[in-house]
Amino acid sequence: MTRYIIRRLMYVILVVFAVTAVAYTIFFVLPSTDPAVAFAGRNPTPELVQEVREQLNLDEPVPVQYALYVKRLVTGDEYGWPGLGLSYNTRSPVRDEIINRASVTLQIAIGGAILWLLIGIPIGVISALKQRSLADRLAMGFALVGVSAPVFWLGLVMLYVFWEKLGWLPGTGYVPFAESPKEWFLHMLMPWMVLALLFAAIYARIVRGNMIDTMGEDYIRTARAKGLSESRVVTRHGLRAGLSPVITLLGIDLALLVGNTVVTETVFNMPGLGNYVLVSTDSGDLPGVLAVVVLAAFAVAFLSLVSDIIYAYLDPRVRYR
């Protein structure tokens, strides 16, 4: 098991560096706005552009720039570890920005995940147990709507209905939990619901499929033959097997959300990582964009590792493949 974990860890490191190299190449080597020119204002003198270029180490060859970036990433820079550099836009350390914003994104992602599991799993289970019933049709209809509706559109509809027309919920923005737990909850509710509707729909379909397969297995029939109650058969034997793929999926989905909340955070004006990557891209703030890319790659690779380890623990066959 230890050897398996080490092997997988090496793989994570490899993936993160491969992503970093590709991202660095895209942003710094392929044609894009010269950050030094962008930073030097709209009517810059060549001397000022050169000064900025030196300040930002852009006068070094690209491989040297990349090597410096990786070195700072691994060993840290003057602003702490990991060394993510200085924002071209705000001239504040990217690291601090990422830490502040990651907590907001995590709150959205975790809250949304809880909500989509609470919605998606029961719907999937009921659909599976009551196949072709009215409940099944309605549940799958809900799934179809959830999967089909674009997130930005759903967000705008929710704002229109719950804030603008009904006035039940506050509009956009983020209130820290420490400032007011009630306001925090009310401001998070719509972003959670938007994410939850999308993912709950997907999870409901997956759970339904898995449960239908599982409930047709021989050991379920055996459990019933032993005289166990139907609820016990479903909860003890059906759900345990039927939900295990959901655990893997949840890990990956949560990781993807780290860099994938651009739309939700933009619509609801949440100062998270998605919002940050949008602002950074728009303003040509390459260190900001790169930092989110690296973090997202790390999150996906790391949570995949965690999922793999859990799987290997649950199913010994996996670790010997």
Binding site: L156, L159, E164, G171, T172, G173, E265, T266, V267, F268, N269, P271, N275, L278, V279
Partner: peptide, 13 residues
């Protein structure tokens, strides 16, 4: 002077 990334929402507010 705050930041709201949703332009439509700014004018609705």
């Amino acid at each position: 002077i705050s930041v709201n990334t949703n332009l439509d929402n700014i004018f609705a507010q």
